[in-house]
Simulated assay, not measured.
Amino acid sequence: MLEKNPPSNRLYHRLNEALQNGSKIWIEVQGDRYAGRPIYLDSEFVEVLCLYAPDKNEAASEPCLSTTWLIRLSQIIAVAYPSEQWSADRFTRLLQAQSPAPEREDPAA
């Protein structure tokens, strides 16, 4: 649930974008890191849902497990969020498309 007058800072806006887009984020606080998708945001807290597959030592009765973290915005040191990922081939094709074609000598000259 979003407030009517949200705070006007970059951290809040980036977290709100991730909340609206369902994007995964990584949050760093003093001594800890959290990863997941924001499911709630207000002027003081962000709630982050982390889904993961159980390891071999955990009960395999559930296909996935979840943890929800409630993190105070004022304690966040850094937030990372994914940007578009390109394969090496896609990047090479883009560079080739941007490069001017090599000039050729006219054999008739």
Rank of each mutant, 00 (worst) to 15 (best):
M1A: 05
M1E: 04
L2R: 09
L2N: 11
E3I: 07
E3H: 03
K4S: 15
P6V: 06
P7F: 08
P7S: 12
S8F: 05
L11H: 11
L11I: 11
L15P: 01
N16W: 01
N16Y: 06
E17L: 13
E17I: 09
A18D: 00
A18V: 01
L19F: 02
N21L: 13
N21C: 09
S23D: 12
K24E: 03
W26M: 12
E28F: 06
E28T: 07
Q30F: 14
Q30V: 12
Y34Q: 10
A35P: 01
G36Y: 02
R37I: 04
R37V: 04
R37G: 06
P38W: 01
P38E: 05
I39Y: 03
I39Q: 02
L41N: 00
L41Q: 03
S43F: 06
F45R: 07
F45L: 02
V46Y: 00
E47R: 04
V48N: 00
L51Q: 02
L51T: 01
Y52I: 04
P54M: 04
P54L: 06
D55W: 08
D55N: 15
K56G: 13
K56Y: 14
N57Q: 14
A59G: 14
E62H: 15
C64H: 09
C64E: 12
C64G: 07
C64D: 10
L65T: 05
L65F: 08
L65E: 06
L65G: 03
S66K: 02
T67D: 08
T67C: 10
T68H: 10
T68K: 15
L70K: 12
R72T: 11
R72I: 08
Q75P: 03
Q75M: 10
Q75W: 09
I76F: 00
I77M: 11
A78P: 05
V79S: 07
V79H: 07
P82I: 01
P82D: 06
E84S: 07
Q85L: 10
Q85A: 09
W86V: 06
A88D: 10
D89C: 04
R90L: 10
R90K: 09
R90T: 09
R90P: 02
F91P: 06
T92I: 13
L94F: 15
L95H: 05
Q96D: 10
Q96G: 07
A97T: 13
A97G: 14
Q98G: 11
S99D: 07
A101Y: 04
A101I: 09
P102Y: 13
E103C: 10
E103D: 14
D106A: 11
A108P: 03
A109V: 08
